[in-house]
Each structure stands twice: as C-alpha cells, then as structure tokens.
C-alpha cells in the first residue's frame, strides 16, 4: 500500500480535496444500499477512475468497480457520475466536474451486481438480438467469402460513425424509454441494427426488421436525445434511430437495395516472391 501511495505522491504538485460519495451495495452482506463518503486529494489531471482507484488502494479496498483500458476504448468503467452516465476514465475531476462533491452510482436501468458494477446482460442480449454482423442470403459468401465485397468510401461514410460504439451501456442508462419499458430494444441495439442495415455488404435488413418493427422497437423512441448526449464516443444513437425510421419507411414504399457484389479475384497477376503468405487458420472448417 505504501508503495502505491508513494507513486501517487511523487506526482503530486497541487492537490484539491474532493469528497467522493460512492454507492455501496453488496446483496450477500447487506441488501440495503447506502453511500460511503471519502475525501480524496485530487491532482489536476486526475480522472474519476484515478480517484476511485486511489480510494480502493488507500482508503477502502472493498470498493468494487469495473475498469480495464483507462483510455476510453473498452467501455468498462461507465458509471453515473454526478447524475450523468459517463466513462470514469474520461471524466476529469477538477476541470470537467467543477464540484467539491462527486457522487458515483452504478448505471441506471441495469441490475446492480455490487457497488457501481452493473449487470450488462440486457445490453448484451439486445445487441445479440439484432445480429450485429454482416448477413448474406448466400451463406457461402457470409461465412467464407472468396473475395472482397465492393464498398466505396462514400458507402463507408454512411455507417462509419455508428460503428464506433464500445458497448459501454451509457446510452441505455440515459434513455428514458428504457427506464419505463424494459422490453424497449434500446438505443445501442437500434444503432447497431442501423449500422449493419446500411452497410452495403449486408443483406439482412428483413431479418433485423423482425426485431425492430414492433411496439417495443424502433418506433418507440421518443427522440429525447439523452443517449446521444451520454455517448462518450460521439456515436449519436438518436440520429441513427431517426435515420433508421426513415430507411424502414423508404424500404416499405419500395426502395430497393442491392447488396454489394463480391469482387472478382484478380486474374493474370503473379504473386511477388517476397510477400509472405497468411498463417494457417487456427479454426478448421
């Protein structure tokens, strides 16, 4: 413990005491949730995750949280910070929150496993429901394509923004419809459904429509926009959902979309000798 504390201290230039109120819930020990308060000497530049790690390492080792990459890529550390779902690793304590007190709770609209660790099963299940991968009518092309599928840079732009989702779950926590209706498919799954539906390589629009086009599907979005505000990656799920509504309606009224064709394998070319071959597949089909 002292070594860790020292490593923090060596970086201290000027500290500011910030009070952290952390939601505590351990169903096996005490079924009643409560808040624990810790005073943390925060240095300029610290994120909320830094402060929570400081608490765990120096003040209370029983505090549970989920984190991994510490750089806004994995999405593990999403939690409710001062009333908003955010990534703890991307939230600056001093310059961003500008508050003497920081309240940390688990993401809303999810069951809580312990302290600020939510059970993300609803997110994962809904995500899986929309089949977030390239679907083709020809299963041979879907499973083992013999060439590349044509796609222009403009066609890539159609869905690129929506493919930056890191599945942190912040959008579902912010969504008021998800709060009222647990069956609502939710902004994350809807965005991914749109992302694959407008991918020219995909041919699974009709299959996905079965999951989207019902009373708890895409039409249930109130367009509150809270998901887009919460998204730490700028995916803008609310925008994707509105585009998806337009796309579904257009296809209902006869818009035809031809999925991308396989590019022909190049003929009359000779492989250069110095190009190494790809390693053998680890999974044999």
């Amino acid at each position: 413990m002292s070594g860790t504390t020292d490593s923090y201290k060596t970086n201290f230039t000027e500290t500011k005491d910030i009070v952290f109120k952390i939601f505590r819930y351990e169903p096996d020990v005490n079924p009643k949730p409560h808040f624990d308060t810790f005073t943390v000497p925060v240095v300029k530049g610290w994120t909320v995750l830094d402060a929570v790690m400081y608490i765990k390492e120096n003040l209370d080792s029983t505090v549970s949280y989920r984190a991994s990459c510490r750089m806004g890529i994995c999405g593990s550390c999403a939690m409710e910070i001062n009333g908003k779902p955010r990534l703890a690793c991307q939230t600056q304590v001093i310059s961003e929150l500008r508050s003497k007190e920081v309240v940390i709770k688990p993401l809303a609209n999810y069951p809580v496993l312990r302290d600020v660790v939510p059970d993300l099963t609803p997110l994962i299940e809904k995500h899986a429901d929309v089949r977030p991968y390239i679907l083709r009518k020809d299963k041979k092309v879907e499973v083992n394509p013999k060439g590349e599928l044509y796609q222009t840079p403009d066609q890539l732009e159609e869905y690129l923004q929506f493919s930056y989702c890191i599945k942190c779950g912040a959008c579902l926590a912010a969504c008021p419809v998800t709060g009222a209706d647990v069956k609502f498919i939710g902004p994350q799954a809807l965005t991914q459904s749109y992302r694959y539906s407008v991918d020219t390589r995909d041919d699974g629009f009709k299959l996905r429509l079965e999951v989207m086009d019902h009373s708890h599907g895409v039409w249930h979005c109130h367009f509150a926009g809270a998901c887009s505000e919460a998204c730490p990656k700028g995916v803008d799920p609310a925008f994707a959902i509105q585009l998806f509504k337009r796309e579904i309606t257009a296809r209902k009224f006869g818009k035809e979309v031809e999925p991308a064709r396989l590019a022909r394998q190049p003929a009359d070319v000779k492989r250069r000798e110095n190009i190494p071959y790809a390693p053998e597949k680890t999974v044999k089909q």
Binding site: A180, F184, H220
Partner: peptide, 10 residues
C-alpha cells in the same frame, strides 16, 4: 394512447 399503454405496461 396505445403507445403510452404499451410502454407503461412492459
């Protein structure tokens, strides 16, 4: 009205 009823009766 239908949307509200369906939403509030999940």
């Amino acid at each position: 009205l239908r949307s509200i009823i369906v939403e509030m009766s999940d």
